[in-house]
Structure formats: structure tokens, C-alpha cells
């Protein structure tokens, strides 16, 4: 019987294993220690690892994220939690200028092995300020890496490789996914003794032949639901490709899928303007134009700030029915 745990538990296991792996790994953020984490991701870790490794920060994102960046230059590997990734905007100068460009401006003399992680999603009725999805914004900046895992298995393997990475990795989760379960092998079931997933490797979540639904984060789950409907009701065999990491990007996997299916939709909870899908569809157009039988489509969140009212906000986010409807226009 394969082991099933939640996304949250898998993430915590990954953090716990990296705390054991390297003494320089510490976790810093608001409520991560004594409170056990605002979303309970770090539950139990303070009790196990103590004050030195799990550090409760004041509400002061520019200060503590910047502090983590400075510490990383001297060899500490801080894993910073943003209670919401929306709060990255408070620390924007630190995250965009200091973490991303110090290596370049020093001619390669410095590097910042820092992870900044937290949930980056809408759909929880918390209003526009707490519902931002900034993966496109940070992926726009050379020097940064952006990771967005969609299930329990991947979140564990990706957080571990992100912490071991010697560049700044911005790791974007979803509060909606935290409670979802998935198969995650325990370490004694694994040949290497641990679950490590390299950044820059996409994963085919469902093989198909008729259309590629390419996505990251929670939109992968939505795309899988849409693929089921397409198969059951319309006899369309959709492939679902999960990017897992946005930068570095598994371009080869995208093109391979498109060359097989000849049709593609990029699905994401990002906004449309210069979203991740804009980049991907442009690349498909340039590199696989002759393989396409239809224009590449993009399905995103509505191009508006997040609506508070629960039934309306739901309509702002991509849903399986919308994906099916758009797919039918090109299949």
C-alpha cells in the first residue's frame, strides 16, 4: 500500500530532512516556531529543532527577508516563510535587487543560497491584497529561480533540492493544496534513500494524444479534472504537463508534448498580462509553429483584482468547465 500524506506533511518532511542534512539550514518567518506555522507547515519543527533553527520573525518582511539574504551571502541557508506570498511586495527591493543581482554586480564573487517560500494563490476569499500570484513577476528576473509544486510528492522533492540549490529560489505553494493528499514514498522505499526532484524538470501527469494542457501549481489539478471530462464526455485524450519549476524551465518537455498533440492550452492562476502562459505560448509559437494545428490558448485568472465575495471569486479562477469549453474550440 503506497504511503499517502498531505501536501503540508510532505513539505514539512522535506524541511525536517534538510534541517537534519545541513546545520546551516534554518527556518525564519512569522509564526513559524512557537505558533507552529500560520498554516501549520512547520508544526512540531520548533519543538524538535529549537530556537536556533526555527526563528519567529516580527511582522517585518523587508527586514527579515533582507537579513536572510545577507546571512546567505556568508553561508547560512535560510528558508524564509512568507505567510502569504503577497507579502513579498513588502520585501520587493530585497528580493529583486539584493538576492537577484548581487552575484552579477560582484562579478560572481557572491551568491545567495536562500529559499523564500509560502502560499501564492487566490480562491480563499481573503481579498486582493492576500491573493497575489507573483510567479511571473519573479521569473522575469534573471538570477532568481521560481518553483511551483502541484502535489505532495513534488513539494517534498522540490523543497529539498531548492534548499540545496546555491541560487535564490522562490518557492510558491497554495493554501488550497496544503490539505490534499498524494502518494509520497517513505525514504526506505527509495533507492537513493531520499526524495530529490531537480528544478527544471517538468512531469507528464497524464499522457494524452489530442491536446496538451500545460500548467503549474494548482492549475495542474484543475487541468487534470478537465482532462477527465474531455475523455469521458468528448473522447478527447488530453495530456497534462506540470512544469513544476518555471525558471529554470523544461522547454524540451513542453515542445515534446506539443509536437505529439499539435494543440496546447496554458492554464494558470496567474493574471494574463505577461503571465507565465504568455511566455510559454510565445516559445511554442516560435519553436513548434509548424506542429500546431490551432492557436495556443491561455486560461488565466480573470484580469481583475481578487473579488472577495466567495461565489464571485470562484468564477475568477480557472475551472475545469472553462478548460473543457476552450479546448473544444480547438479540438
Amino acid at each position: 500500500m503506497p504511503r499517502e500524506i498531505t501536501y503540508r506533511e510532505a513539505l514539512r518532511e522535506g524541511l525536517d530532512e534538510e534541517l537534519a542534512y545541513d546545520d546551516n539550514v534554518c527556518i525564519i518567518g512569522e509564526e513559524v516556531a512557537e505558533y507552529n506555522g500560520a498554516y501549520k507547515v512547520t508544526e512540531g519543527l520548533w519543538k524538535k529543532w529549537g530556537d536556533k533553527r526555527l526563528i519567529d520573525a516580527p511582522i517585518s518582511e523587508a527586514g527579515f527577508i533582507g537579513m536572510g539574504i545577507g546571512a546567505s551571502m556568508l553561508g547560512i541557508r535560510p528558508v524564509m516563510e512568507l505567510m502569504f506570498y503577497s507579502f513579498a511586495y513588502v520585501a520587493f527591493d530585497q528580493m529583486m535587487n539584493n538576492a537577484a543581482t548581487c552575484r552579477y554586480m560582484s562579478g560572481g564573487l557572491t551568491n545567495c543560497p536562500i529559499v523564500v517560500r509560502g502560499p501564492a494563490n487566490g480562491g480563499t476569499n481573503v481579498g486582493a491584497t492576500h491573493s497575489h500570484t507573483p510567479e511571473n513577476i519573479f521569473a522575469n528576473m534573471p538570477g532568481l529561480k521560481v518553483v511551483s509544486p502541484s502535489d505532495a510528492h513534488d513539494v517534498k522533492g522540490l523543497i529539498k533540492s531548492s534548499i540545496r540549490d546555491n541560487d535564490p529560489v522562490y518557492f510558491m505553494e497554495s493554501t488550497v493544496l496544503y490539505g490534499m493528499t498524494g502518494e509520497v514514498p517513505s525514504n526506505d522505499e527509495l533507492e537513493d534513500g531520499e526524495l530529490i526532484i531537480p528544478l527544471g524538470k517538468a512531469k507528464v501527469k497524464k499522457e494524452g494524444t489530442d491536446i496538451s494542457l500545460i500548467a503549474h501549481g494548482r492549475a495542474v489539478v484543475t487541468s487534470l479534472q478537465a482532462a477527465e471530462i474531455l475523455a469521458e464526455k468528448y473522447d478527447i485524450n488530453a495530456e497534462v504537463l506540470d512544469l513544476r519549476s518555471i525558471r529554470p524551465l523544461d522547454e524540451a518537455a513542453i515542445m515534446e508534448s506539443v509536437r505529439k498533440t499539435h494543440r496546447a492550452i496554458y492554464v494558470e492562476e496567474n493574471k494574463p498580462f505577461c503571465g507565465v502562459g504568455a511566455q510559454i505560448s510565445s516559445m511554442i509559437m516560435e519553436q513548434a509553429f509548424d506542429d500546431l494545428d490551432a492557436p495556443v490558448l491561455r486560461i488565466t485568472s480573470a484580469d481583475a483584482p481578487a473579488f472577495y465575495s466567495p461565489p464571485i471569486e470562484k468564477l475568477q479562477l480557472p475551472n475545469p468547465e472553462e478548460i473543457v469549453e476552450r479546448a473544444l474550440t480547438i479540438c
Binding site: F64, A71, L74
Partner: peptide
């Protein structure tokens, strides 16, 4: 010597971080 920073005040959290690293180690 850790820079040389162009944004006014932007280096001040980094300075705290260098000190944090010393204490941590």
C-alpha cells in the same frame, strides 16, 4: 567586504544578516 549597494538603505538588512550569520556560526 560585501558591497557596494545602490539602493539607499537597501544594504541595512543585509548588514543585520551578516551579523546574524556570525552569531549563528
Amino acid at each position: 567586504y560585501w558591497g557596494g549597494h545602490g539602493i539607499v538603505g537597501g544594504q541595512t538588512p543585509l548588514g543585520a544578516g551578516l551579523a546574524f550569520a556570525l552569531k549563528y556560526k
